[in-house]
Amino acid sequence: MKRIANGYKGERVSRERFELAIIYVLRFAGILFFVAIVVFPFYWMIVSSLKSLDELLMRPANLALDIRKINFRAYYEVLFEHGFQRYIFNSVYVSVATLVLSVVLATLGGYAVTRIYFRGQSFMSYSILIIYMFPAIVLVIPLYVAFSRLGLRDSIHVLIVVYLAQTIPVALYMLRSYFKTIPPEMEYAGLVDGCSRLGVIWRIVIPISAPALASVAVYTFMIAWNEFLFAFMFLDTPEKFTLSRGVVQIAESVHLSKQLVMAASVVATLPIMILFLFFERYLVKGLTAGAMKG
């Protein structure tokens, strides 16, 4: 009896070890794979941007970077000769405007569909994400035609409107889920204590929702910053280009110089990377907080 018990136990332990080993190996392989496909292009981009054109042409497959030959010439050209200062300004302008408007509108809208009862409230609440049934490419052509006819197309303000239409649904959805987790009594307490409805939103709902708001802000900023399709279709005048449009402008230019494209890409990517790393904690917290009780 005792022997059987021991044998059984021993078998179980070795099996557990075996499974743990497999999980360990698979996890390691998985991480390695994703690091490779994410980090390698990024590395390639930075390394190439720091080389001179001659070196790139002579040894195009060289992955290594010679520290002594680091060359910031490409960045200088991108910023001061190809108008990227203007593009950076445009991108910041568009992204910040999208962020601010999107957060304000989604806060009010999300609050309305969770707390204020009106005809069609639950329909509104659940149909928020319907816009995502239409791929951007389906929308871009009719919008192109419509804004062209209206004579509004070549404008970064129209671009902001389009970005709002893209970011508000998700922003609203995220905030709605978060607002639902705030007990209504908390707001009743605010009302009885002497706040107006807007006062309750400003003094109670918004401070409590800070993590969700931070993640919505980062999300909308990233969408607006990285967006390419509409910027490419709508903008004609180089002074109005955003960064992503600017990178393509360089890539399409007659004498293609790879180090310039790479430098331009770094300029376009770096801010968003830094922003993301800085706010990553909030982003994850905000995205999952609502999901728990949704």
């Binding site: 009594e185 009743y188 307490a189 009302l191 204590d193």
Partner: peptide
Amino acid sequence: LSPRDRDVAMVFQSYALYPH
């Protein structure tokens, strides 16, 4: 009158203290 102007105070079952 709105809750504010009625000048009543309320204590809730869940207390509803402002967590921030």
